[in-house]
Each structure stands twice: as C-alpha cells, then as structure tokens.
C-alpha cells in the first residue's frame, strides 16, 4: 500500500474524518495551554510585559511561511502526479496561511509600537511578510477568478511555483535594501543569544499548537472543498445526461 492511496477522495475523507477530532483536540489543548502558560511567565527585564505577545507572534509567523511551503509541495504533487486532493489541499491552505501572515503582521505592529516607537517600520522582515501577504492575496484571487476547476488548479499551481521563487528573491532583495530593527531569530541556536527556558518551553508548546491548528483547519477546509467538488461533479453529470 502506497501513500498515494490517500489521494483517493473517498479514502482521504474517511481517514481524515477519524483523525480530525484528535487533531482538533490537540490543537485546542496546545494553543490555549501555550498561550496561558506564556501569559503567566514573568516580565522580561528589558522588554517588560510586551514580550508576551511573542507566544502569538512567532508561531503565527512560522506557520505563515510553512503554509506557503505546504502549498508549494501540494502544487508540485498536483502538477506532476495529478492528484486532485492535493490541488484542493493547496487551495484550502491559502486562506489559513494568509490569516497567519496577517496575525504576524498585526501582532508585530502592536509589539513594535512600544519597542521601536512606531506601528510600522519598513524593516526587512516586516516588509517581506507584507510581500508574502500580497502573494497569498494573488493566489486566492486567481482561484476565485477561474471557473473551470481543472484550469484553476493548473494555473494556481504554476503561480505558486513562480511566486515561490520570487517570494524568496524578494526576501533577500528586501534584506539588501534595508538592514532593519527586527531582532534576530527568536530561537537562534547561537549560544548567548538564546531565550531563557522560561520563555522557550511555552513558546514550543504554542508553536506545536499553531501547527496542529493549521493542520486541523486545512483538513476541514480540504474536506469541504472535496464535498463541494463532488456536488459540482454530480450536477455536471446530471446536466450532461
């Protein structure tokens, strides 16, 4: 039995139906747990209580990028192996990824106000997230604009491929354009720069929670998309007969 069997919509619906409640429960537990635990941590000696937004900001930013990566992989699977569920999963992930990007941007702005004294700074990281958000918007708009589902899947797949290359290019271009205020990676491995364990463990939990949340939302949306497609397919068959 190969992993590709899950590309069969019926099989996908059945399997995802069994695991979905567990993922939803895990997502709720980890996200709420991580956020509450994070909220109860002591204030940072430099950043005060504002640091607590990190438990929302970092996992959202992480998933914003991972969602695009997942869309890229799903698009490639669709373009190469023509598994229909894969195309629908890419479609389902886009709005979730866009909302994650938006959360990262908004929490970043709220955090930046007391820290840097401004709501918005044209900092490389913020700017490249804004560009990423634009890519999400374009991708979703293209799915909505094309009526024929097969063409829509192909064209959005192509856009995702080309967009990925240019999103990466933009990231480096923006870095070059303005060396920013943003702190380095929150979970940097370089010694001395590490976050203290007090913050690190709730952050890990929150990240796991956001990952499960993303997974649950994408599964639910993919299931909805499959059912919508099935409805459309039955209607098309009826019109033809």
């Amino acid at each position: 039995m190969s992993i590709w069997e899950y590309a069969n919509p019926v099989k996908f619906l059945r399997t995802s139906g069994t695991v979905l409640p567990w993922i939803v429960a895990g997502a709720a537990l980890c996200t709420i747990g991580g956020l509450v635990w994070g909220f109860l941590t002591p204030d940072d000696y430099r950043q005060g209580s504002t640091v607590k937004i990190v438990f929302l900001h970092v996992p959202a930013a992480l998933m914003a990028i991972n969602a695009w990566l997942m869309m890229l992989v799903a698009s490639l699977i669709w373009l190469i192996r023509r598994h229909h569920v894969s195309a629908l999963a890419a479609k389902a992930a886009a709005p979730v990824g866009a909302v994650m990007t938006l959360i990262a941007l908004i929490t970043g702005a709220i955090w930046g106000q007391p820290m840097w004294g401004t709501w918005w700074e044209w900092d490389p990281r913020l700017t490249s997230f804004l560009v990423l958000f634009l890519f999400y918007l374009g991708y979703m708009a293209l799915w909505e604009a094309i009526e024929d589902p097969d063409s829509a899947a192909d064209l959005t797949g192509l856009l995702c491929l080309v967009g990925s290359v240019f999103a990466l290019l933009s990231r480096y271009a923006v870095n070059f354009w303005n060396q920013g205020l943003h702190q380095g990676a929150s979970l940097s491995v370089a010694p001395g720069e590490r976050m203290s364990a007090i913050y690190r463990y709730p952050l890990y939990l929150s990240m796991l929670g956001f990952f499960l949340l993303f997974l649950a939302l994408v599964l639910i949306r993919t299931r909805t998309e499959i059912r919508r497609r099935r409805l459309a397919a039955l209607l098309a068959r009826e019109h033809r007969a």
């Binding site: 919509p9 397919a233 039955l234």
Partner: peptide, 17 residues
C-alpha cells in the same frame, strides 16, 4: 456513457463523481 468510473479521471468532475 456516464456512470462508468474511468481508470484515469479526465478532470475534477470525473475524479469526484
């Protein structure tokens, strides 16, 4: 003939019916 499930679906409308 509609109703037969083809081995290689031609598009979403055949893959999901």
């Amino acid at each position: 003939q509609p109703g037969r499930k083809p081995a290689r679906p031609a598009g979403f409308n055949e893959a999901f019916a």
